[in-house]
Design a binder for these strands. Sequence first.
DNA 1: CTGGATCCCCCCAGATACTG
DNA 2: CAGTATCTGGGGGGATCCAG
Lengths: 130, 130
Amino acid sequence: MSLSSPSSSSLPSPATAEQTCPIRDVLDRIGDQWSLLILDALGTRLMRFNALHREIGDVSKQMLSRTLKRLEQDGFIARTLYPEVPPRVEYELTPLGRSFLVPMKSLVAWADANHAHICAARRDYERMAA
Amino acid sequence: MSLSSPSSSSLPSPATAEQTCPIRDVLDRIGDQWSLLILDALGTRLMRFNALHREIGDVSKQMLSRTLKRLEQDGFIARTLYPEVPPRVEYELTPLGRSFLVPMKSLVAWADANHAHICAARRDYERMAA
DNA sequence: CTGGATCCCCCCAGATACTG
DNA sequence: CAGTATCTGGGGGGATCCAG
C-alpha cells in the first residue's frame, strides 16, 4: 500500500473526482486546521456548540460549523438536536471517532515529545543562513 | 496538555506569530497535502528530486521543492548536494524523520482499515438528504 | 538535473449581519 | 443558542519560463 498517486492514469476525473487512495482521502479530511482539535475536545466529553467554540478559542463559528458537519458526514461524531427553546445541540464521538483517538494520541504524543527538537532544527537552519 | 488555544490572552502576536501549542505547531507543518506523502516515500529509501516527483505523481515541482525545504528546516529530512554536472541531490530521512514514521504508520494503518467505514458513513448521510 | 522566479486563478476562511 | 448568508481578501498551488 502506497500513498502515492491514485491510479495516475489519465482519468478525466468523472464528475466527483472519484476517491483517490484511502489514506489520502482520510488524511485530507482530518488534516485541516480544526478537525483534530475538535476530536480532541470531544474525546474528553460530549459538548454543545458554544462550549466547543469557547474550548477551541480561535475558530470562527463558520469554520466550526463546517468542520463539525464534515466530521459528522464521515461518521466521526454524532449530532443530537433537542427541539427546545432555546435549541440545544450536543456533539459526541461515535465508536469510529473514539477508535481514531488511538492513532491520534500517538501522533500528539510524538509532537509533544519532539517539538523542542524541531524548534532546535529550525534555529540551526537559520544560523546557517548567516 | 490541551490542543486548544495558545494562551488565548491578547498577545498582539509579536512579529513572528510566536509558537502556539506544540501540537498545533507540528501538525500545521506535516498536515499539508504533500508532507506525509514525501515522508512515506523517503521511508522506503533515499531518493533524488525527480525520483520523488515521479513517485508522488501529481505534485508540481514548485510544491515539491517548497515542501522538501520545510521538512529539511524542521529536521525531518536531510538534503545532500553532490556538486557534479549534472547536479545530483539526494533526500533521506533523519533520525527524527524516521522516528516520526512510527506514529504516522499507525495513522495510515487506521485510515486504511477504516476507509470503507467512512465511505459507508458518507453514503448513509447522503441517503438521509433524500 | 535541480530547482528559483513569475504570473495568475481559485478557494479557503475571517468578519459581519441575520434567522429560527 | 445554534447556526446560515454574503462579501471579501490572502494565499496556496498549478503552469510556465529561466538559471546554474
